[in-house]
């Protein structure tokens, strides 16, 4: 126990990386999901099949496998580029690899959340906006996107709490978040129990905070709806 204590701030400090990685990844996923959903609503003939295939594929793949694919894939591509253009191979940032891999993967989940949200909105609201003479672009930006985002809040907040947990996987390609730091400390102190216990507590605190925040969000969401 005693050997772990001095490393406490180091492990807990990993939370900043965990949260930052989750936020950036989450933003990617939301952007992809929203874009794909809006594309589908345009009725473009290719949109439906492509988005559906994207969702089906990335819903089925393990997050860890995606991370490896992106990480090794980038590594090989960079090496090849380095050889042909004659520069020194640069190491791949684990942060970037995770953001891309999980962002693309969770984009598939967020497509589902957004298209459910879109379906839950009374189509009369869009018709009303068109009837008012708003341009299609304005209908999208001023009516569709705000309404979809609002209806997607419960699903998205759920997705974010999953994202926080999945970010632990980034440790396997070297991102120094909580899990990775706990592992490093466990190796050097030979006190894995204590080190991982600290990591467990970190995530439980996050989970508790997320639960509180979610409850508050839902409450304010409900009150704005009733008003």
């Amino acid at each position: 126990m005693h050997a772990t204590l001095p490393f406490l701030p180091y492990i807990v400090g990993g939370l900043a990386v965990t949260i930052l990685a989750s936020l950036v990844t989450f933003a990617c996923a939301v952007a992809i999901g929203l874009a794909a959903t809006l594309w589908m609503t345009t009725g473009h003939p290719a949109a439906g099949p492509i988005v559906r295939a994207y969702v089906a594929i990335f819903r089925s793949l393990p997050e860890l496998l995606c991370i490896f694919l992106v990480y090794y894939g980038c590594e090989i591509a960079l090496q090849k580029a380095a050889v042909s253009f004659g520069f020194r191979p640069i190491p791949i940032s684990p942060f970037l690899a995770v953001t891309v891999a999980i962002g693309v993967q969770f984009g598939a989940y967020s497509v589902q959340i957004f298209s459910d949200a879109h379906r839950s909105i009374n189509p009369g609201l869009f018709e009303a906006a068109h009837a008012l003479g708003l341009s299609p672009r304005k209908v999208t930006t001023r009516v569709a996107i705000p309404l979809i985002l609002q209806a997607a809040i419960p699903g998205l907040s759920n997705l974010f709490s999953v994202m926080l947990k999945v970010s632990a996987l980034a440790s396997v390609i070297g991102l120094e978040e909580v899990t990775r730091r706990a592992k490093i400390v466990a190796g050097s102190t030979r006190e894995p129990f204590a080190a991982y216990a600290v990591a467990v507590v970190c995530f439980l605190v996050i989970a508790a905070a997320a639960a509180l925040l979610q409850a508050r969000l839902e409450r304010s969401f409900r009150s704005t709806r009733e008003a």
Binding site: Y196, A199, V200, A208
Partner: peptide
Amino acid sequence: FVFRGIPLLILLYFLYYGA
């Protein structure tokens, strides 16, 4: 609450290396 809150990887590390 606890087991939904802990990432599976950390639970696995905890049980495999810590326990």
